[in-house]
Design a protein around this nucleic acid. Structure first.
Lengths: 204, 204
DNA sequence: TGGTCCATTTACAGTATTGTCGGTAGGAGG
DNA sequence: CCTCCTACCGACAATACTGTAAATGGACCA
């Protein structure tokens, strides 16, 4: 009683299982046998599709990056294009990133592939976001007949938002009680952070 | 020709070696044999002192937390006690944390022991810092006859600084060229962040 | 229907890694 | 000097994990 999938389908399934293990079990949880069990296949099938365990982790890291890009672009597309909402945009982007648990995966990626080439891709995405943000701010300044903010300021805003989200998602346990209380504190913190950035931007 | 150390000394040596491996090689680099080789001992000695590999990692995680606490407290002690320097204090604390590479270790710790009890300890440290910051702010407000900021505001400042530092240290690769150019950008970013917090605090 | 492709499996090989055991030796205290 | 404690080691056991080889069968196509 053997299920046969397309190669693409099988690969996705395997990556899904590996990702789930990574979310739950930390950086050492990528074991071929366990992943295979989760995916309902035998472990040599994984090797058939990814060459080696290393191939699997590399592919997984790539996919995490791709998914992140998609999530962010989607969030940008959904956010209204008014000038003041630039902050909201950022906030929304990164709260999405966080709630989906992608932050943990990103951290694993950074930790595991310190000198990998994957960083360039991430950087492009962030450059893109910073560009959009900056354009909006420049347009806003023109309207109000104020002088435009330095480019680096916009870049730093994105950098801060990224770092804060990543860091916050990682160290959540340290920041308060669990359950409902924590959720509401998380929300208040996010809002507080949004306001902080907003005020900074308003001050141009 | 056999070297005999005190148990305490041996444990420290082993933990040092393990920590170094973790810094360089990522989360999967904790191998008893390699660590033993680095420490100039045989691997059963590690097991003798730590029961099991798991015992070693747990102990290492604990020590990382302790060291962090010490570093932070030291930095606090060194920073002047004037009110306005509260931000500087934070900035200094976390730049120290970052430059020593402790941020990477913390990330490993969070990733590996998701539901461990270690979180409480970290939280206590942060609570302490937030307390100090808040006291200073309250005193400052009293002097200026302004109304004191909400406690949660101080707490959130610390939370943001922590998260941002941790996240930034992790994702540094994604943020720009390496070498001298990056260093100066890092410095500017830190300053920028410091000013951002400072302005927020000044606005009470 | 017969044939080909290839995703999948079972069984196995090889190796790396953790953990155990018995014994050895350094050093402190009597 | 003798004795005890225990840090330490070499050799071995057990297991866990990755990777290989050969066979199997599902699906599509002629």
């Amino acid at each position: 009683m053997r299920v046969r999938r397309t190669a693409e389908e099988a690969r996705e399934r395997i990556l899904d299982a590996a990702e789930a293990r990574l979310r739950r079990g930390g950086p050492e949880a990528i074991r071929l046998q366990e992943i295979a069990a989760d995916a309902g296949i035998s472990h040599p099938t994984i090797l058939h599709h990814f060459e080696s365990r290393d191939g699997l982790t590399r592919e997984l890291a790539k996919r995490i990056g791709r998914k992140l890009g998609e999530e962010i672009l989607e969030a940008i597309a959904r956010s209204p294009a008014t000038e003041a909402s630039a902050v909201e945009m950022i906030e929304h982007v990164f709260s999405t990133l966080r709630d989906t648990g992608t932050a943990r995966l990103l951290a694993w990626r950074e930790l595991s592939f310190e000198s990998a080439d994957g960083g360039a891709e991430t950087r492009e995405i962030l450059d893109g976001i910073a560009g959009i943000l900056h354009e909006r701010r420049v347009a806003h300044a023109k309207e109000q007949r104020l002088r435009p903010p330095p480019r680096e300021d916009s870049w730093f805003i994105v950098r801060l938002a990224t770092a804060a989200t990543l860091g916050d998602a990682l160290s959540t346990e340290a920041f308060g009680a669990t359950g409902a209380e924590r959720r509401s504190a998380d929300l208040r913190f996010r809002r507080w952070f949004g306001r902080l950035l907003h005020e900074h931007i308003e001050r141009s």
